[in-house]
């Protein structure tokens, strides 16, 4: 088992990284030294300087400004996806678990169908049908992941359904919706938060991966996957243009994973022992 001090340091680090990136995303217009979309061909591939701390890309756009603005798109989209999956997954999962019977059967068969596809391939296909762009990518990734959550939430709801306190609430006249909201959600909220934290990194990789393939956020919108895709042909001459956005994704995903692991350890010491 890891020493508590080490674990605390890692959690601190993860939180610090996430705070930095959230700040970058929130205060992008204040922090960015330049307009992220301003093309200036005279500064094409400009080396780092005081004016352009990380240099410029192949169109002379300021690399640092683009990285900062991209935090908005990458992190924002991942958060929107995670939130919508949690809401939709809870709605479907709790309904299925709580109502049981035919509703349960129909919802779970629907989940089964979605779980049959390889996730990334289905997301690609959906973007192909819906068209590229931020909204459609968010929709595609959310649609390909909700079934996992619906299933987990259903099984969690099932374990709680017959608990005495839930029955007591039902007997005393609490409606199904109210019971689910007041008596099912709170006990599983912590587990859901951990799941979502561990998955946010995964969602980000999906969005950026699709954007990298040209099937996601469209250029010139600054997004880390788009930036890697823009710089891919210059890997031999200007690898740093790939390394900066790549490192940003890597660090962000790592911070979410660290935090998720730490949250799981804190909630479930038995599991942490086995790890």
């Amino acid at each position: 088992m890891r020493r508590p001090t080490f674990r605390k340091a890692m959690i601190g680090l993860a939180c610090a990284i996430m705070a930095c990136i959230a700040l970058m995303a929130a205060a992008a217009p204040l922090l960015a030294p330049h307009d992220p979309d301003a093309i200036d061909l005279e500064h094409k591939f400009a080396p780092p300087s005081l004016e352009h701390p990380l240099g410029c890309d192949h169109l002379g756009r300021d690399e640092l400004s683009r990285l900062i603005y991209a935090a908005r798109v990458s992190m924002g989209s991942a958060l929107v996806i995670a939130a919508s999956i949690l809401i939709f997954g809870f709605a479907a999962g709790a309904t299925a678990g709580f109502l049981g019977g035919r509703t349960d059967a129909v919802l779970m068969r629907l989940c089964d169908v979605f779980l049959t596809f390889p996730t990334f391939i289905l997301a690609m296909f959906m973007v192909g049908v819906l068209g590229t762009g931020l909204t459609n990518v968010i929709l595609a990734v959310a649609l390909t992941h909700w079934a996992w959550y619906a299933r987990i939430i259903r099984s969690l709801a099932l374990t709680l359904k017959h608990r005495d306190y839930v029955l007591a609430a039902r007997i005393s006249g609490s409606g199904r919706l109210k019971t689910a909201w007041l008596h099912i959600l709170p006990p599983i909220a912590a587990q859901l938060a951990i799941l979502a934290t561990l998955d946010i990194g995964h969602m980000m990789m999906h969005v950026s991966g699709l954007s990298f393939l040209g099937l996601g956020v469209t250029p010139p919108t600054p997004e880390w996957g788009v930036m890697i895709s823009d710089a891919r042909q210059f890997v031999w001459t200007h690898p740093e243009l790939i390394m900066y956005p790549g490192a940003m994704i890597f660090i962000t995903v790592m911070a979410f994973n660290l935090l998720g692991d730490a949250m799981r350890d804190a909630l479930d010491p038995a599991l942490a022992e086995a790890e």
């Binding site: 890997v235 995903v253 994973n257």
Partner: peptide, 22 residues
């Protein structure tokens, strides 16, 4: 393993190209 689950494949590919090819 911590490193491996956090690095996106579309970035890893270029890191590998840069190290082993370039």
């Amino acid at each position: 393993s911590f490193f491996g689950v956090s690095i996106p494949n579309f970035f890893l590919g270029f890191v590998l190209v840069w190290i082993f090819s370039v």
